[in-house]
């Protein structure tokens, strides 16, 4: 009796597997007929150094204009590890900050620590790779990717060269974002990154501020 049930069950499973297999085959065939096969990637990366600019546009009291350098190890076509991305920002005060300092005697510039240095370590998930024809004449290869990881941030109200670090903050956070890469040559590419860091902890003050830092990056990458 039991053997009979097992036999029936195996039969059903086999039939289900066959049907699923046929379904997958049919879907693949439909896809292949409609869109053609997926071509091999023309460009791929191994060890990448990237160097470029950064913009920190969202803070109410300053806008940051910076430079950054990064090193990324590409494991395969889908996954990569951005081992580090280090940046420095030159901060320009907003009208709001200037108004507060000018009009209110109690307000001091030391109360506005701004992001001066940062470090990101991120996993890269490169989910899209594609090519686009430009004006129906040339082809541009590109990829889109998502990033997620940790961040260390150094905030200070004054620039580094002032040497005043009494009101500095040393922070840790998590960051996530999206990016796009456009290949200029087989070795060189242009990379655009949009990232948002949520600061979770300020080490030297023992606080949990939950602050946001948005960053727009434009970098040139070279595949070593």
């Amino acid at each position: 009796m039991r053997a009979h049930v097992i036999e029936k069950l195996s039969g059903c499973l086999l039939l289900a597997a066959l049907l699923v297999g046929m379904g997958v085959r049919a879907e693949e065939k439909w896809y292949s007929e409609r869109y053609g096969p997926v071509q091999k990637r023309l460009y791929d990366l191994d060890h990448e150094i990237s160097l470029g600019w950064a913009l920190l546009p969202l803070d109410a009291y300053y806008k940051g204009y910076g430079v950054q350098i990064g090193y990324t190890i590409h494991f395969n076509e889908i996954w990569a590890l951005e081992l580090f991305r280090i940046g420095w920002s030159y901060n320009l005060d907003t009208k709001l900050k200037n108004k507060l300092i000018d009009q209110i005697p109690d307000v001091s510039p030391s109360e506005f620590p701004a992001v001066v240095l940062w470090e990101n370590t991120n996993l890269l998930f490169k989910f899209f790779y594609g090519k686009q024809s430009f004006l129906n004449r040339t082809v541009i290869h590109f990829e889109l990717f998502a990033t997620a990881g940790g961040a260390f941030v150094f905030r200070n109200p004054y620039p580094l060269w002032d040497g005043d670090f009494h009101n500095a903050n040393y922070e840790f956070g998590v960051n996530g974002g999206f990016g796009a890469r456009f290949w200029l040559t087989p070795r060189w590419s242009l990379r655009v990154d949009l990232r948002d860091t949520v600061v979770l902890l300020t080490f030297n003050r023992g606080s949990f501020p939950l602050k946001n830092i948005a960053l727009v990056g434009l970098t040139f990458g070279v595949n070593l």
Partner: peptide
């Protein structure tokens, strides 16, 4: 000016324009 196609995880193709 840009029209093309992307592979999603190397398995599917989608068409797009910029």
């Amino acid at each position: 000016p840009l029209y093309g196609k992307m592979s999603v995880m190397n398995s599917r193709i989608i068409f797009m324009e910029t």
